[in-house]
């Protein structure tokens, strides 16, 4: 099985980081993975995105044009990529920043006010990890505990607060239920 994921938002929202966590987890789970970022002016605050592919087969093109899963963290990326999601795919949208709703009936839409949840819980900048939590809950692509362990393993152990915050953000997303 091949899962193609596109993660898009503004530079600084951690979209590249979120993609890297999925790719790293996939690699350690013995799967083939690729991670391809947009680069250049995006890094300085424009729109940024990354293509992540997790597969049990050799990966051909690393570019995701028609994602199975789209993470959208701003209205620009929603407008640009929502229509490209494969039928049967899933949209994860940060509803704090995107007031629109998808009109597509052939995809599953998951709206999480990730940015608001982050600031309510003093986790500024944690919207990406909140969304990762919801993503793992909805897709079951990887086991929850294993994913968390992998994510925090790259954080130096002297930054205990950062590890704690990431774990907290993940579980807020994982446990979030839409009304």
């Amino acid at each position: 099985m091949t899962t193609k994921i596109l993660i898009a938002g503004f530079g600084g929202q951690g979209v590249l980081f979120a993609g890297k966590q999925i790719a790293k987890m996939g690699m350690d789970a013995g799967m083939k993975v690729s991670w391809l970022p947009s680069y250049g002016p995006e890094m300085r605050g424009g729109t940024a995105n990354c293509s992540v592919i997790v597969s049990d087969e050799e990966i051909g093109s690393p570019i995701v044009n028609t994602p199975d899963i789209l993470f959208s963290f701003n209205i620009q990326s929603f407008d640009k990529f929502e229509k490209s999601i494969k039928a049967g795919g899933i949209l994860f949208a940060d509803s704090s920043l995107i007031s629109k709703k998808s009109t597509r009936a052939d995809i599953k839409c998951v709206y999480v006010p990730a940015t608001e949840l982050a600031s309510e819980n003093e986790l500024t900048g944690g919207a990406n990890v909140i969304m990762l939590g919801k993503f793992i809950k909805e897709t079951g692509l990887f086991a929850k505990d294993e994913f968390i362990e992998h994510m925090v393993s790259s954080i130096p152990s002297n930054k205990a607060k950062l590890i704690e915050n990431n774990k907290k953000a993940f579980s807020i997303g994982y446990n979030y239920e839409e009304n």
């Binding site: 690729s34 680069y39 690393p62």
Partner: peptide, 10 residues
């Protein structure tokens, strides 16, 4: 090329 330079793989 830029894609090979920037992309990550195992």
């Amino acid at each position: 090329d830029g894609a090979l330079g920037q992309m990550m793989e195992p």
